[in-house]
């Protein structure tokens, strides 16, 4: 019995990639196993922890919930591609400055989800909204206190940056 694979092509962190994968392959496994982008994590098998969150065409999506075939032709950004080489996205910097991470396992997913949150809400984010919006991301280490602080801080930084543009 041979394994049936099919070719998919997509853009990941600005680079065109293609791969031969089984139909059942999840996007998260393509990223981790085929492309070596191990910053995207797997924390559950029921699409609830958000450790695998990436951006597909600019929106936060749990990459464990997407078959690679569904992402064919799309534009995917992972934590590795969020900022330029040796640069930090304001959200990444805010997580560091506010101690928004401990073990770091949930962190890439948190950051990707939070970037999308700020995109959708802009400067209108407040603590209650951030907490509500983080519903799909579980962190077992930080108690969320500093994650919420990080997101609010980054929202401010991102707004100032866009106002300056």
């Amino acid at each position: 019995m041979t394994i049936v694979t099919r070719k998919v092509s997509l853009t990941v962190n600005g680079k065109a990639v293609s791969a031969d994968v089984e139909d059942r392959t999840l996007l998260v496994h393509l990223l981790r196993d085929n492309l070596g982008l191990t910053g995207t994590h797997v924390g559950c098998d029921t699409s609830q922890c958000g450790a695998c969150t990436v951006h597909i065409d600019g929106r936060a999506v749990k990459s464990c919930t997407v078959l690679v075939g569904q992402a064919d032709g799309s534009n995917v950004t992972t934590i590795e591609g969020l900022a330029g080489h040796n640069e930090l996205h304001p959200m990444q910097a805010a997580f560091r400055d506010n101690h928004g991470l401990q073990c770091g396992y949930c962190t890439p997913g948190m950051i990707m989800a939070a970037v999308d949150m700020v995109r959708r809400h802009g400067g209108k984010l407040d603590e209650a909204t951030v907490r509500q919006e983080l519903e799909g991301n579980i962190c077992r280490c930080t108690g969320y206190h500093n994650i919420v602080k990080s997101v609010l801080d980054a929202a401010g930084r991102m707004e100032m940056a866009s106002a300056a543009e």
Binding site: G36, L37, T38, H41, E80, L88, F95, R96, H99
Partner: peptide, 21 residues
């Protein structure tokens, strides 16, 4: 002091067991 280890975690460069191939 901000944590020395954070840079690798916030940029997706942490190295957990399943990341090792």
């Amino acid at each position: 002091l901000a944590r020395k280890e954070d840079k690798r975690f916030i940029t997706g460069k942490g190295r957990y067991v399943d990341d090792v191939r």
